[in-house]
Design a protein around this nucleic acid. Structure first.
Length: 807
DNA sequence: ATCCTCCCCTAC
DNA sequence: TAAGGTAGGGGAGGAT
């Protein structure tokens, strides 16, 4: 599974040596690349300069920009075959080995085997159907085109991703361990504690310039110097750096993630580009990220903090609130505890901590400003007024760039001035809630209680970096990867979602194709769309199917996509770490017995100018029909008691007891369908390679379903079960179906439509049709016709397409 | 009024 | 090169 980079390296070394020999041999007489002009995209091995040298030496051309004279784009290891930083019309995208091998061969080799995005390279991408069937990747697999996961590669380097991950982790750690942590102090009686005055004692702890502190801890030589943490690096002070960065740091767009206080004196700020920073301070030293160390430090921070109080509110990996109301009798006493807490943390982690404390969350936080660096500060009741007066509004929590700007238009820059603005005025400008908060905060009023645990409301995955697609199928493929990532997180967190939403960043019409920051997203419009599910899920197959369907609804121009994200909302809990699959039948039962959720009609939202095409207007008619239909069956679903179809579901024998005989008893054509659908399912690669619909605004109505989430991922078993229910149902009511059963069946099919499992819907209807035919009862036929009509409408509404079902 | 969806903003 | 994630609060505007 793991790619052997060592081997690859030596392979490359040999190759380069050979190449060198060739170069010496040929020296000018080679015209291997005549007529070829290359453009090198991104990082390649060998690098662009080497390739340029080679290509020119052998009669080819080299271009610094992707112009029309470029015949071949050269790229290595663009993290996945889906990501392209290129918008290419006719030129081929090839691996640099094409050049090396051609030189070695002494002639221009066909590009076929070297094209990065060819069908053959894509089909290597497998979703292992059975976990036991390990990677089929043979040893002869060309090591040069390894399809490493872009998602993993990106996340492992993303500081923001780490920040978020650690924050959630620490929130979970706190809520789990806080109640049973051993405390250093015991609580005082309510008569003695600070609380007796009705006063809270809140401490806000914050590690000083977190990343830099950790870096400096192990680099004593850099203490007292301007230092910044970034991906872009020079060789200063680092044992592990051997090369000088090719591009001057002066023009690096890499972010400064964290900088020392000495660096701040030069005007350097977190989030600045390395280029800007080095202009402000040419002697600035750059040190690399050390994510593991940061992680360990924050873990220690939290382990320590929870031994001090039972009231701890996590903020982030380097920031936390602690309430001491029940442990101290005076502010002086609290000051002492804070001091020892700070020194304990510094001792354990080697990092300096600052602390602000006061009688509410807001003021404690504001006090920390004055405490930094490496200090502590008590903001007392009496000082609040004066302190706030001079506090810039931007340091109030919740006021960022936009709000600061908005306030400044009103002539407000500090809290003193903010107080001059009336409550009605603030509400008018910022809305009722925000206005009120602003009004309170300007006066130091904050009645929030410290929250030790908060329930998670959503879980999401998104990447807004390095997204460059040519084909929509590449975007879909990335969504599949994101879905897998999301599944794995949902599994870890133990949640299921009943709503899936897709978020896209789309290049603004007026924004340039080439972003200022390398592979950045540039100026974008954000659009999103969500889909409610009747069955909560955490299955990546379900998620990706829905996400892809949402993508089709938004139908962006693939080359304008600059970012994508998927979120799971309306969470419920599942058993942690156990895949949904086992519990899925239970979910289906829930579905079958619960009343239908409220559903929104296919609303016509303007998706703005970013959309290539809008959907046709004639769909409006079917929407209203659909709504009437919906009302009808919602009303009839009001009765209670177990009906036959329902009970058939509930009495379902364990799947393991459904034997072959059930299947074999079916008409043979149905059996075939069952198996067909199963075998189709296995050829997932083929499916993903299907040509993209020529109508980008329409989803394919027969989009292949993944059954992995149903009946333990066993589709034929699932269909068997469905068929069994239908048979039992029909047999029980020879005179005609119970209305409610029809309703339940419809709901059930609609939930499959939610998951885009249209093929299964179709097959289920076929089952129904067949059983009904054998009964030849007018009522049943009517029921069948009605079910078909409702489902057809539903599909029509969602996809503006049609479902092929039996007459 | 209240809810829902989409979107923006903020924080680390 | 560079790695611009993620959760939550809240507002606008439409549907109910």
């Amino acid at each position: 599974m793991a790619f052997d980079w060592e081997d690859h390296k030596s392979y490359m070394t040999v190759k380069r040596q050979k190449l060198q020999d060739q170069l010496e041999d040929v020296e000018g007489d080679g015209k291997i690349f005549s007529g070829v002009t290359i453009y090198v995209n991104g990082y390649t091995k060998p690098d662009a300069d080497t390739l340029k040298e080679i290509i020119c030496k052998h009669g080819g051309g080299y271009s610094y920009a992707l112009t029309s004279r470029v015949s071949h784009v050269i790229a290595t290891n663009l993290p996945t075959a889906k990501i392209k930083a290129l918008s290419i019309n006719s030129s081929k995208v090839c691996h640099p080995d094409w050049i090396l091998d051609s030189v070695n061969a002494g002639s221009l080799l066909p590009t076929e085997k070297y094209e990065l995005y060819s069908v053959s390279s894509k089909s290597q991408r497998k979703i292992s159907f059975s976990p036991t069937a390990k990677k089929e990747a043979g040893p002869e697999d060309p090591p040069t085109k390894k399809d490493r996961s872009f998602v993993d590669e990106f996340y492992s380097h993303s500081r923001l991703h780490h920040l978020s991950t650690w924050a959630s982790e620490l929130k979970e750690f706190t809520s789990k361990n806080l109640p049973r942590a051993k405390r250093k102090f015991s609580m005082l009686s309510s008569g003695e504690s600070l609380r007796r005055f009705g006063v809270k004692g809140v401490v806000h702890l914050d590690l000083d310039s977190f990343f830099v502190s950790v870096g400096l801890r192990d680099r004593p030589g850099l203490h007292g110097q301007p230092v910044a943490v970034t991906h872009a690096r020079n060789k200063e002070g680092e044992a592990d750096t051997t090369e000088v960065v090719g591009v001057s740091l002066h023009q690096s767009m890499s972010d400064v993630a964290s900088c020392s206080y000495e660096a701040r004196d030069f005007g350097i700020r977190n989030g600045m580009s390395v280029g800007e920073a080095i202009n402000l301070c040419p002697s600035l030293t750059f040190i690399p990220y050390e994510f593991e160390k940061y992680h360990a430090v924050s873990q220690t921070l939290y382990e320590t903090v929870i031994t001090y109080s039972h009231l701890v509110e996590p903020v982030s990996c380097d920031e936390v609130f602690i309430e001491f109301s029940d442990y101290v009798t005076s502010w002086e006493e609290l000051g002492d505890i804070v001091k020892s807490l700070r020194s304990e943390i510094e001792e354990k982690t080697g990092c300096k901590v600052s602390a602000g404390f006061s009688h509410n969350l807001l003021l404690a936080r504001l006090a920390t400003r004055k405490a930094k660096p490496n200090g502590q500060f008590h903001l007392s009741e009496e000082e609040v007024e004066g302190y706030l007066k001079e506090t810039p509004v931007a340091s109030l929590p919740g006021i960022g760039r936009k709000m600061k700007e908005e306030l400044s238009k009103m002539g407000v820059s500090n809290c003193g001035e903010l107080r001059e603005v009336s409550l009605p005025k603030l509400r008018e400008v910022f809305g009722p809630k925000t206005g009120y908060t602003l009004y309170c905060f300007a006066r130091g009023i904050d009645n929030r209680d410290l929250t030790t645990k908060k329930e998670r409301k959503s879980i999401s995955v998104e990447i807004n970096y390095g997204m460059r697609f040519e084909q929509i199928s590449e975007a879909e493929s990335l969504l599949t990867q994101l879905s897998e990532e999301l599944q794995s997180r949902a599994l870890d967190t133990g949640v299921l979602g009943s709503s899936i939403s897709l978020k896209l960043k789309i290049r603004q019409k007026t924004a340039p194709q080439e972003t200022k920051k390398y592979l950045g997203h540039g100026r974008c419009d954000n659009i999103s769309r969500s889909q409610q599910l009747h069955i909560p899920t955490n299955d990546s197959g379900d998620i990706s199917r829905v996400a892809i369907s949402l993508l089709k609804q938004l139908s962006p121009n693939p080359s304008d996509i600059r970012g994508m994200g998927i979120a799971l909302n309306k969470l419920s809990s599942s058993v942690k770490g156990s895949p949904v699959k086992g519990g899925k039948m239970a979910d289906i039962r829930t579905l079958m017995t619960s009343s239908p959720g409220k559903r929104s009609p296919a609303s016509k939202r303007s998706l703005g100018s970013v959309l290539k095409s809008e959907r046709g207007g004639e769909e409006g008619a079917s929407v209203s029909v659909m709504r009437e239909e919906r009302v009808e069956y919602q009303n009839t679903a009001a009765g209670d008691g177990c009906t036959s179809f329902e009970s058939a579901m509930l009495d379902l024998p364990p799947a393991s007891q459904l034997d072959q005989s059930v299947l074999l008893a079916l008409p043979s054509d149905l059996q075939e369908e069952v198996f067909d659908s199963y075998s189709k399912r296995q050829d997932k690669e083929r499916v993903t390679l299907e040509p993209v619909s020529t109508e980008p605004s329409l989803a394919n109505p027969l989009f292949p379903p993944s059954l992995s989430s149903l009946s333990n991922g066993n589709p034929e078993r699932f269909l068997n079960e469905t068929r069994t229910h239908i048979k039992a149902w029909v047999a029980l009511y020879p005179a005609g179906p119970k209305e409610r059963d029809s309703t339940i069946f419809i709901q059930f099919l609609i939930s499959l439509i939610d998951l885009n499992a249209l093929e299964i819907v179709s097959l289920s209807l076929k089952c129904f049709h067949r059983v009904v035919q054998s009964i030849t009862n007018e009522k049943w036929r009517e029921a069948y016709a009605r079910v078909v009509a409702v489902i057809q409408d539903e599909v029509l509404m969602r996809y503006n397409g049609h479902l092929s079902i039996p007459p």
